[in-house]
Design a protein around this nucleic acid. Sequence first.
DNA 1: GTAAGTTACGAGCGACGTAAAAATG
DNA 2: CATTTTTACGTCGCTCGTAACTTAC
Lengths: 281, 281
Amino acid sequence: MAELNQFYQLVAIADTGTLSKAAELVHISQPALTRSIQKLEAEWNVTLFDRQKNKITLNQTGEIAVQYARRILEDVNTMTDAIQAYDRSLRTISIGSCAPGPLLELLPELTERFYGMALTSETVSAESLLPGLEKGTYQLIITDAEVTIPDILCHPFCSEQLYLTVPPAHPLANRKEGIYLEDLAGETMLLFKEIGIWKNRVILKMPQTKFILQDQDEAFSALIQVSALPAFASDLTLKHGDRWQNQNRLTLPILDPEAHVTFYCSAHKSRKAYLPGQHNL
Amino acid sequence: MAELNQFYQLVAIADTGTLSKAAELVHISQPALTRSIQKLEAEWNVTLFDRQKNKITLNQTGEIAVQYARRILEDVNTMTDAIQAYDRSLRTISIGSCAPGPLLELLPELTERFYGMALTSETVSAESLLPGLEKGTYQLIITDAEVTIPDILCHPFCSEQLYLTVPPAHPLANRKEGIYLEDLAGETMLLFKEIGIWKNRVILKMPQTKFILQDQDEAFSALIQVSALPAFASDLTLKHGDRWQNQNRLTLPILDPEAHVTFYCSAHKSRKAYLPGQHNL
DNA sequence: GTAAGTTACGAGCGACGTAAAAATG
DNA sequence: CATTTTTACGTCGCTCGTAACTTAC
């Protein structure tokens, strides 16, 4: 039987023009390549090359063979890609969340419970979560509202409380009992860009506040360190991130009701095992 | 590198359901098949089967792999078919003729001069010869008129003279000087079916004559033997065929001008070598 | 002389088959 | 007990690389 190996060698000869260079390309000796091609010709009982004493050239039959060989090798490549991608998908839990905070709670738990599986997570718009769950883009989604759809299991998962962090010298620093969003009117704040649902719940209700956006995690931490600007935090980011460690800042709870969210975790009932326990509730 | 061999084995497992039967199908021992499949899985770093202790079943990844493997194996089959067909076409001289007689002259000569090449010939309608030559269906055509087309070489090749054969007891048997087609009015004749141009030149001009058609060569010879009916022959069929041997028949020349034809042989100038010498001219 | 292709020859590795073990019904 | 799969082990064969030869530029 002809083998892919030989197709590969054939294409290499077509690409390089000589047996010697092709042999180098496919990492065998030149005589070995000669024999391999001779064997292929014998197998098919055809002539693929015009042979002069020290020169070989693809003949018409050979050109046709190379065309086919190229296509088949490509097909085999897409085959292996597809197979490996599918296999990986079986070992991967993809998580979509409407906010970054719950992922801080969820990922460590899943990492531990499903050792050996790959976890991918992203914070995306709330509207794309349910379609993503149904199309299989996500096996697990985190929403800020309960999901009631047949075959989809939904548990309350955790809550998140928003805080303001300010340097001790900041005028608001003495408001230990908490502040309201409207107290921040006229202020300039640092704001992490990927905050999902918080944008609609909080930021859009603060038209009087100016925000300096930052989408890189490290850069954000650095800015927190060097600037005196207030910024948002939450019980979850405070609990998990090292973003706030050693920052010498005060944390003041936001008292508006929008600043407290309950998150729900949903998965298809066939993926029941992925659903986490309840946290912070 | 994964090899076609393994694809074949994979498909065999999918088709038979067990390693044992598949091993039999692909003519290796069952442990060898186990190893080969294990190697494939290791190569791709993927699991293709659900394994119980003494049972294996294709998993989803495996099903996908089988689908691809089937298609690729089919593609390889069409590949080899195409390559071998093309190679054969390079070693084949296809001849189209407007009459069977000249082929009797031509084929022996070409067989000798192009030993190792395959010859295919057929008697077809005169109109399909030139298109066939230009499309490459034929490399050589025999016509009853000269061909004058650029890049096409045309030589007069041979002539054919029509005869009537009758048993000695036939009323026409004494017409040694020859007869005319109209003399056959009212007669019933044996006629070989595949006569190409002769149908238009001769048969259609004999509305008063009845013909018994026969398209099998051997059956025609047998009928000649046992019947007293007149039939057509020609100098070429008399020279070459054994159809007339030991038939104890008289041959009378047909005196009509239509009964004598000059044939021309044409080929593309790139196939100049195929053109035969001149015969019977 | 250099570079390319084919043939000859010997060696090593890989795939094969046999045998044995383990599990299932 | 028959069937199926996996592992172990020894052998055979295939393919490889080196070397030598031929040819061409």
